[in-house]
């Protein structure tokens, strides 16, 4: 861990001023990811800008009937927010499926989006890793890759994005509000995280000097037919091998609109419009779901330790869509698959 300067910002403008022109500066929110990475010498910021005092801690209704979540709303506060519980229960469930109580109490909405992969090589500076040190090579492709991507990987990197919350946000078509010295912009969730390609050092399309100010949810929350199913190596407090966030709009037995996003399988929460198109207008039963799973996984590729995830993902998709269709969402407290 290196020695660093600490600055505290009291408003967004101040935060942007602190970060401007300093490539080695980092914002710190809950610190649950950044500090770990600093301890491992993976992140070596010379300046750490504390943004926890910024007035971005509110969850507010938007004029359009959606919800605007401040970037510094804690994961726990968001999961238990009445409007989220009632209107976006899949988001509440996804958050509750992640990490531990203590971590969720600290973690912020913006930080959750920007948490970095859990690839063990990325964390260990004794090993090559293109994401940490571009051009050094990817140790995972021929190494330990149980937790790694089966979709959208590249020759340079097969890391996954570890967030649960983001899988639900992707399914919900959230938007990310970003501020910078040169003005504000809004990024569609699908365009926020990126695939590794040959620049795996970049996780997202956020630019240097930009700050996340809020995440916006559109009105549609799929509060009746939804689920968040997460499969992991123990029953709690582990990252997803595969997770699925589902939202269905049903008309009797027929799917009017069906969406699902996968976690634990790619460099970003994985949505596939073609797979979702398979659901539209079809009967909500296992055969339909299996077809959709087949489409989303058509290009899936396994490595030495994670090939099982392809079939696991298929079964998870079917199960999650079934749970959602039945209106029996996965419980995050029972620790038992429903």
């Amino acid at each position: 861990m290196i020695s660093f300067h600490y600055a505290r910002a009291s408003c967004v403008g101040e935060a942007l001023q602190e970060v401007a022109g300093d490539a080695n500066a980092k914002f710190i929110a809950g610190g649950t990811n950044l500090i770990d990475l600093m301890k491992m010498d993976v992140e070596r910021p010379t300046k750490v800008i504390d943004i926890t005092r910024l007035p971005l801690k509110r969850v507010e209704r938007t004029p359009g009937g959606g919800l605007r979540i401040g970037a510094l709303v804690r994961n726990t506060d968001l999961a238990y927010h009445p409007l989220v519980e009632q209107r976006y229960p899949v988001l509440a469930d996804a958050i509750m499926a992640g990490a531990s109580q203590q971590l969720r109490n600290m973690a912020s909405t913006g930080g959750n989006l920007l948490q970095r992969t859990r690839c063990a090589y990325f964390y260990d500076i004794a090993t090559p890793c293109n994401k940490r040190e571009p051009g050094s090579g990817c140790s995972a492709i021929e190494g330990q890759n149980r937790m790694h991507a089966i979709l959208g990987g590249s020759e340079a990197c097969i890391a996954t994005h570890p967030s649960d919350m983001c899988v639900a946000l992707a399914m919900l078509d959230a938007k990310v509000h970003v501020g910078s010295a040169s003005g504000d912009r809004v990024i569609a969730f699908a365009d926020f995280h990126r695939l590794p390609g040959d620049t795996p050092q970049r996780d997202t399309h956020l630019n240097a000097g930009e700050i996340i100010t809020a995440v916006e949810l559109p009105p549609k929350g799929f509060a009746t037919n939804y689920t968040y199913l997460k499969i992991r190596d123990r029953l709690s407090y582990a990252f997803a091998l595969v997770s699925v966030a589902v939202g269905l709009e049903l008309d009797g037995d027929t799917i009017k609109e069906g969406r699902f996003a996968l976690g634990g399988v790619a460099h970003k929460p994985w949505r596939d419009p073609q797979a979702e198109a398979v659901l539209r207008g079809q009967p909500a039963h296992a055969a339909t779901f299996a077809r959709a799973a087949g489409v989303v996984l058509r290009d899936a590729r396994g490595y030495a330790h994670n090939t099982f995830k392809i079939d696991l993902a298929r079964r998870c998709i079917v199960r999650a869509l079934t749970q959602a269709a039945c209106g029996t969402p996965q419980s995050q407290s029972a620790k038992k698959i429903v």
Binding site: D124, A126, S139
Partner: peptide, 12 residues
Amino acid sequence: LIDHRFGRVMNA
């Protein structure tokens, strides 16, 4: 979990 190429525990 040891990466035998590096002889190193990776889930330390």
